[in-house]
Design a protein around this nucleic acid. Sequence first.
DNA 1: TTTAGTACCTTGCACAACATAGTACTATAA
DNA 2: TTATAGTACTATGTTGTGCAAGGTACTAAA
Lengths: 111, 111
Amino acid sequence: MVNSENAKAQMRKGVLELCILSILSQGEAYPTEIIEKLKETKLVVVEGTLYPLLTRLKNTGLLSYRWEESTSGPPRKYYFLTEIGQTYLNELQVSWLELVNAVNTTVQNTK
Amino acid sequence: MVNSENAKAQMRKGVLELCILSILSQGEAYPTEIIEKLKETKLVVVEGTLYPLLTRLKNTGLLSYRWEESTSGPPRKYYFLTEIGQTYLNELQVSWLELVNAVNTTVQNTK
DNA sequence: TTTAGTACCTTGCACAACATAGTACTATAA
DNA sequence: TTATAGTACTATGTTGTGCAAGGTACTAAA
């Protein structure tokens, strides 16, 4: 059986970083909030993916976070973009547009 | 040092399958030819990536190939889309457009 | 004090891309 | 005829990412 689900998952990979940085450039957010925002645009991500990714982005200096108490559960980690993160995001956005152009050129020749 | 090269490479992953199937839907081609065509649109792929991918696509029934003698070296494997491959390509193209929309929505809210 | 809800974290696996090295065929030059 | 260069296909081991699954810890309500 040929199923494109796996290929779709593959395509999602690699743009997650871009999307998460984009979301955080609108203002700080904690992981559960980020997952919700991604869902709105049909990009489904699970915790097991997001937490390690956020840690990675923090360790490379693109993100930082602060703790904030919550009245409805454990404290939350609010992540936000660093200055380096903002610069990096701009680069990624350019790369994304270039990729879209490259792929669209290839695909459109098809028709 | 923060470098977006790795992230760019990650974004390329996942769209390769789409691009290769798209190229082959224009007519059969052998691996070296495919690499050339991808280079034209700035999607650089190396042999170590392409050959296993073509084998995978062949094994799942999306591609087929025929041997053809060459006057300038060893025989070439000319790959072409099967009927299943054509159907699958159509699905992938839809998925690609959906992904582009999702990411663009997220990115554009940034500005 | 038990249960439900929220939030964060860790481990192990699967898969794709890539670097690297190797085999094999042809044509040309020594 | 042998050696060399060019072309083409193949195999192996590593790495990075996403994800499934399971776990810890805090709060509030029953």
